[in-house]
Computed example of a mutant assay.
Amino acid sequence: MKMTGRCWMTALGLTLMTAACAAEDAAQSDKPTEEIIEIRRDRTPVTEFTPTELEARIDDLVKAINQSGLKPIEMVVLLKHLSTFFEPIATGANRAMGELEAVGNVLGPSTQMTTDDGTASQNLQNQQIANAIEDGVQGLGISPYDVLNEPSVKEAVKQKLHVVTFDTDLKDSGRTLYVGAIQKEAGAKAAQALLDSKIKDDEIPALPPPPGTILVHGDASTQWYDGSQRTFGVLDVLGQTGYTAQVVQAVFINGQEGYDVDQLKTQILNANPPVVGMIGVFNISYRCVMAAEDTGRLDIPIVTFDFDPKTVEYMQKKRIKATVVQRQYYEGYLVPYILYGIQHIGLEATKQILGPLMVDEKGMPDEHRVNIGVDVVPANKFQAYNDFLDQIGSIQ
């Protein structure tokens, strides 16, 4: 394995998330890499939220790898950033790399970069991918921004580097596998949660029967494939009801939260028929609550996405009916194990073990995506879910 001595530090304030640099001298020496006796996983607590099928597949992968004559491999996992939403991903990836005794790092800016020019974050990831290729790593995990990262991923694949995407996919890049939620399915579950009369709390308004408008705080453009797929999943379900679905474009630009909330407020005040429900499909979807409160519409049931601290706060106040949570910790945890499995037992054997998880939104086999699912957390269980995340070190 080739190491350049950079130890992955750059002038861009990247945070080094593992102790891999301590192993740099050993990696640069001519001595053969010492074999690992056996991989031993840290056990995940069993609760109503523990994904038992996913845990079983990881256990099976570990068993197969343990029979392969283990040697550490060099890998790098690239995150959009290391704060808020991505903190649990970093936790999972670091834990897995520690269990595997893998050489490498989990990298990303310490906080979300300002992306007003639209290219700063993508350019950073492209440089990180180039570094990975130069350093001769054997596996690369990446949460890419968009198609501006696609040429770099294609170059990594051309150099025989196995690439696993997570959180966001680049399906046309030649990547080996994607790990995460199937976004259209996740969006559909958000819509079903709003419609489900069995998910109820006496302190939260119920969705009245149609007619009525349901605002969808999402992204229906095709420029962001995953974002639009999640939004379309919501629209597909609502299209089978008597409600009118209206998409309000979510705005992520730094400093634009007020503008985003104002857009939602305008639609609440002017929609015809009147707004009777709201669904937000991104981690900023707590803004739906802010808009409803600002217009005095406390009667609107709201379903959100993810487990942002502000979302948790509003759930505690009984302002959110349910939230759909991506399993970020498991995204980060599974990627190093997949990269390690590909190297030790081969891609096909790894995919065979993960087979029960490799299905699309219709439950059909999917050769390139590992569907780790989502958690639908109703308001009356937010504390239990928060406790589960705390147990696995996954609070963001």
Rank of each mutant, 00 (worst) to 15 (best):
T266V: 12
Y243K: 07
Y286E: 01
D306H: 07
P309T: 08
V276A: 00
T323F: 02
Q223M: 12
Y259M: 12
T323M: 02
E203T: 13
T231N: 07
G258F: 07
D236A: 11
Q246Y: 12
P210C: 05
C288R: 00
D262H: 14
I279L: 00
V324A: 04
D236N: 11
P205V: 01
E293I: 10
Y329H: 11
A220H: 10
Q267G: 05
K265M: 11
G280I: 07
F232N: 13
D260S: 14
T222N: 15
I214A: 06
T311G: 10
S285V: 00
P274H: 02
T311D: 09
H217C: 08
G280D: 09
E257W: 13
P301C: 09
P208F: 01
G218M: 08
R319Q: 14
R327E: 07
T241H: 06
R287G: 00
R230A: 09
I320S: 09
I253H: 14
T304H: 07
E203D: 12
A322G: 03
Y330K: 10
N270T: 14
R327T: 08
G212E: 00
Y259D: 13
T241M: 04
E203P: 04
T241F: 08
V281F: 04
F232P: 00
G218D: 02
Y314D: 13
C288A: 06
K321D: 03
D226E: 10
G258A: 14
A250Q: 11
N272F: 01
S228D: 15
F305W: 13
V237C: 06
P273H: 01
M315N: 10
R327S: 06
Q267V: 11
G280E: 09
E313A: 15
A292S: 05
N283D: 13
V234Q: 00
G296F: 05
Q267D: 11
N272Q: 11
L235D: 06
V248C: 04
C288P: 08
V237K: 09
G233T: 05
N270E: 10
D299P: 05
G239P: 06
Q240C: 04
P208C: 02
A245V: 02
Q240L: 12
D294H: 08
D202E: 14
Q223C: 10
T295H: 01
K200F: 14
K317R: 15
